[in-house]
Design a protein around this nucleic acid. Structure first.
Lengths: 202, 202
DNA sequence: TTGCTGTTTGACAATAATGTCAAACATTGC
DNA sequence: GCAATGTTTGACATTATTGTCAAACAGCAA
């Protein structure tokens, strides 16, 4: 059999990942992706059945990558605060590396192309619900201990998510409002950890 | 001349507003909008030149509405904390009334249909930049006073925006994760004010 | 060389959505 | 009634994009 000597497939994946999740151009056509990869459009259909399948692959890769990073520490025996700090670190890193992943999920959920169930299934691990419940319990304990302000565990979790995700999601807007360059905004994101912690803990 | 006795135009606007910003189905076709309004598709083009123009109108209405509400108090002489509280109130009300407006801006920014400049121009008032600067100054004063945690004014502003906008933007996701009905989520949003304040102030 | 398998190409078909247009219709003023 | 103006309709043209397919091509094995 003829060996696949050229790395066409990888070139396509890389180009797509870059365009979609680094540049945030979700509407990019298969033609644009093919051009960026330096191949003909038909090859996208040859290696992946459709545009959607290509997406799936990239998305799954990103999710698995993040999952792996989080799993180790989240289930470890470190303190609540340590866990949150690590969580923030991982999330900020993701925001810097693939800034538009979250924005994509949001967009697609609202487009109706993916319904929320599918989105959640895609970005969540199987046993998400039990994990969420366990996490909410932990938060409750912390509130009793007095390390975080008194509020419902749900509010705390939503606050945490918001503080982490929105600066990435609304990146283009903030850049314009604050008249920041790409580089400046990345620096801004990179230093947010302290401000996030101050918003979360007493 | 024949008087426009039927309110076709209004019906279209209402249907579009509902589908786009209450249901969040941004991809809805002109046909769907026409159906919802109970008119033929061609009438969308008759009353508004194109689908985009229709969007513009609705978006502008929403913006002007919110602007009006904010302007009065923001420029008044109330305290910083009072201003923020009012800001939160208005924003939450908007989240309940037209929950998908922000998600739309985000989506469209990233779709590349609107570039960030246009988006910001659309949702911002003319003199936004001076207002932003004035607001950042106010934040700085508050930090010196010690009413809010020590961080850059930018961080504070981004925290504020995130805590307000993200729960609306990511609404479909949160509903699924927390297994909440529409009504339950609305109730959750309605009670968030205290939790937001606790995250912002010392 | 010949044949096999995987790869690449260009042309084509299918689909989905938007916007246009001429003609039909309705309402009002005269 | 009948012009005149605004409204509504259905058919059509246009455009953009995706996916398919048969044929050409390249490398390896016998």
């Amino acid at each position: 059999m003829a060996i696949k000597d050229s790395n066409t497939e990888k070139q396509i994946v890389e180009a797509a990942r870059h365009i979609f999740f680094k540049e945030g151009r979700f509407k990019a056509t298969t033609q644009e992706i093919a051009d960026a990869a330096g191949v003909t459009r038909t090859l996208l259909n040859y290696y992946f059945r459709s545009r959607d399948v290509l997406f799936e692959k990239i998305l799954q890769d990103a999710r698995e990558n993040m999952d792996a990073k989080l799993k180790t520490v989240m289930e470890g025996s470190s303190s609540f605060r340590e866990k949150i700090e690590y969580f923030i670190d991982v999330f900020i890193e993701q925001s810097l590396n693939l800034p538009y992943i979250d924005a994509y999920m949001i967009s697609r959920m609202n487009d109706g192309i993916l319904n929320p169930d599918e989105v959640v299934d895609k970005l969540a691990t199987r046993d998400m619900h039990t994990k969420v419940k366990r996490f909410l319990k932990e938060i409750e304990t912390e509130i009793e201990k007095g390390t975080i302000p008194h509020m419902t565990p749900l509010d705390f979790m939503v606050n945490l998510s918001s503080l982490l995700a929105y600066p990435g999601v609304a990146q283009p807007m903030f850049k314009k409002i604050f008249q920041m360059s790409d580089k400046q905004y990345r620096q801004f994101l990179a230093q947010r950890k302290a401000a996030i912690l101050k918003a979360l803990f007493k």
